[in-house]
Simulated assay, not measured.
Amino acid sequence: MQLERLEHRACFGGWQDVYRHRSHVLDCDTSFAVYLPPVAAQKAVPVLYWLSGLTCTEQNFIAKAGAQRYAAEHGVALVVPDTSPRGEHVPDADNYDLGKGAGFYLNATREPWSRHYRMYDYVVDELPALVEANFPVTDARAVSGHSMGGHGALVIALRNPDRYRSVSAFAPIVAPSQVPWGEKAFTAYLGDDREAWKDYDATELVARATQVPPILIDQGEADEFLRSQLRPELFKAAAEKAGWSPQLAMHAGYDHSYYFVASFIGKHVAHHAQALYAEKL
């Protein structure tokens, strides 16, 4: 599969690049960012996949979070896909929380979305295969994200615990079946059968999980979406009832923005680096 490099910038001794390629899964051209730490010039390194939130592209995280500094220190590559398929022929909606920029990291089953909106398969299968075939990385993977991307990270890790060493999230939509953002997106993409929604609902998944990777969640107490859309207490209660112990930290004064992400991204990269460099049992 041919990669076109769009950006190449020195950053903390490594390289921050952006690439474009034709995605068979999404049936469109798509872009993703790759940060390679300095040590990648000598050896293959593990990968932390980052999933961004509503309205974002791959640019928001790489420009605002400041994660490259910590990835360089820990010897971890960062891979950041777009949040949805793009292109003139890709269906869209007239609002920010559905359509382009709002793929919700699922495989849509309803028209007109089902042809292109298959971000779950793209993130889990096509993108890692592409990255591992073209860059100096290992198959040790972790996944993290913010808001809608936090939802995606938790769902992907809980559904594939053998493929991800760890997972973390900032202000994730943990129970999309119970909040307006999720109900709107799931109805459009998946239809009215709420049983089908459970495969993309982290609170439902953790309740029935038989294996989970280490989970870290940070949430701002001043987040304007905390009570209406995010509801982290639902995930924590379901996880603990099932016998799991996710780390959930609440932070006074912090909102939903990238100022919050930037404040704690070092903690998250360290969380993943510990798991990624640990001996696999």
Rank of each mutant, 00 (worst) to 15 (best):
I215M: 12
L106T: 07
T138S: 03
L130N: 02
P246A: 06
E240T: 14
V137G: 01
R9H: 10
S177I: 03
A238D: 05
G150R: 08
Y96W: 15
P128H: 11
S166Q: 07
H272C: 12
A169F: 07
F170K: 03
F170C: 05
G14W: 11
A93S: 13
R5L: 10
D139I: 00
T203A: 10
A273R: 01
E4H: 12
H151W: 02
E183P: 01
Q42E: 14
F235G: 05
A140C: 13
H8V: 00
R194M: 11
G182S: 07
P214V: 08
R69A: 12
N60P: 00
Q68F: 06
R227S: 13
D82M: 02
A157W: 02
V269A: 11
D17N: 15
Y258P: 02
L190Y: 01
Y96N: 11
V39C: 09
G145A: 04
P46I: 11
M250Y: 10
T30N: 03
Q2L: 12
G103K: 00
I265L: 09
W15M: 09
I62Q: 12
Q178F: 00
Y164N: 01
R118S: 01
W197K: 01
L26C: 03
M148A: 05
A102Q: 02
S168K: 02
K241A: 15
G253Y: 10
P213A: 10
R227E: 15
S144Y: 04
T109Q: 10
H151L: 13
